[in-house]
Simulated assay, not measured.
Amino acid sequence: MNYMLKDENAIYYECRYSCDNALYLRLGSEAFFITDSRYTIDAEQNVKGAKVIINGDLYGEAVKLLKKAKVKKVVFDPKEWSVAGFEKITSQCKVTFKAELDFSHKKRIIKSDEELEILAKAAKLGAKAFNALAKEFNQSGFGESEYALTHTAKSILGSFGKYELSFDPIVAVNSNAAKPHAMPTKKKLKKGDLLLLVDAGLKYKRYCSDRTRTVEVGKGFKFETRQTFKSKKIQKAYDTVLKAHDNAIAKARSGMKAKKVDALTRDIITKAGFGEYYVHSTGHGVGLDIHEMPYISSRSDTIIEDGMVYTIEPGIYIPGEFGIRIEDMVAMVDGKAVVL
């Protein structure tokens, strides 16, 4: 198969190296990694299974290679390409360019044993970071705004620069947690607050982790899944989310459609009377990208298979009051979901 890639993670998957200015071409049995001279040393030392070509004109070099190879068809993912970059190549080649959405994500949907080990390590490091974050918030987080708490979360999760983050962490207090992807505000953390939601992850060897915990803020609180709340309404909502989370992990099976896994959380939340407040899908794949296949939604017919890694993250969000989400990453192993 002939294909061309522009996305960093898609390129990394192919040759174990990428940078912010590169183009990858696979033409039959040959592969080419094209980049500029800033990355010569790193590329030559790290690229596997592809010829490194140094040329600041990535697109011009790609055109030369395509013409020389005399290929008739090349696959690409339109999500990866700018209009200008794509046209620089296609306007100069008599080649049929076939668009295939999520081309690389489809290749990466089943993780290798090596990838599963890396993702498990990323998840364990993420969990360890949550423990450190709880300790830091207990010691110096009270009276701090969500802005400051988010900054602290970035430092702790990244081990002060040792690891990259999977995404900007979400740290939301009380009613701000009702926004699934809440942005930080001036709202301050206080002892006795009904709720603190933290959604965060870090990268290990470029692979992401993703985790969410929701707690009542009291003395010595920890980011554990079992939580007690003073408010009966919040407690009911929390227990419902936890039941949905645990049910999906216990009952997800290889061979199921993704929408069936979604139903394992959604049906419980709906029956408890919170259905209208569950506003997102149950989960998403995790790998080199924080969001990739499979998508665990009520519309997905994707068949779940061994080797897939995805999140289980049901939630209830009541505007102006509170939001609750509990999230863990699972891998499908021997037909069942195993928490990483």
Rank of each mutant, 00 (worst) to 15 (best):
L340A: 09
K190R: 12
G201M: 04
L157A: 03
E30R: 08
I303Y: 07
Y295G: 05
I312G: 09
E146F: 04
R26A: 10
P294K: 01
L116F: 02
G85Q: 06
R206K: 15
C208E: 13
S209D: 07
T35W: 06
V47A: 10
A148V: 12
L202Y: 08
G283V: 09
G49T: 03
D193V: 03
P314I: 06
I318S: 03
K187Y: 13
G315W: 03
K128A: 15
S140V: 10
H280Q: 13
P294T: 01
I54M: 04
K243R: 07
K230C: 08
S91Q: 11
G283M: 07
V261Q: 06
T240F: 01
P319R: 09
Y278R: 08
V309I: 13
Q45P: 04
Y277L: 04
E327P: 00
H284P: 01
K64I: 10
K162F: 05
L65Q: 05
N2P: 06
H151M: 12
M256R: 00
S29A: 14
A331Q: 14
E30H: 07
M1H: 09
D102V: 00
D113W: 00
S37A: 10
E321Y: 06
G28K: 00
S145E: 07
L264I: 08
K271M: 12
A182P: 01
S300R: 03
V241L: 08
I170L: 11
F160W: 14
Y17M: 06
S209M: 03
E136W: 00
V198N: 12
V52R: 03
G218Y: 05
Y13Q: 07
F97M: 01
G126L: 07
L116K: 00
D199G: 09
I318H: 04
N138A: 06
N21Q: 13
Y317H: 13
A263I: 02
Y204W: 04
T90R: 11
V286D: 14
F322P: 00
D193Q: 02
V74P: 09
I234W: 08
F32L: 02
V286N: 09
D306C: 00
D306A: 03
V279H: 08
I303P: 02
V309Q: 02
G201L: 05
K94A: 15
A99H: 01
G315P: 03
E100N: 04
N55A: 15
L27A: 06
L189W: 09
L340G: 01
I296N: 00
E164Y: 13
G56S: 13
C19R: 05
D246M: 07
N138H: 04
I89E: 13
I269T: 11
S297I: 08
K336R: 14
M1N: 05
L264S: 10
K70D: 15
G28N: 00
P180I: 13
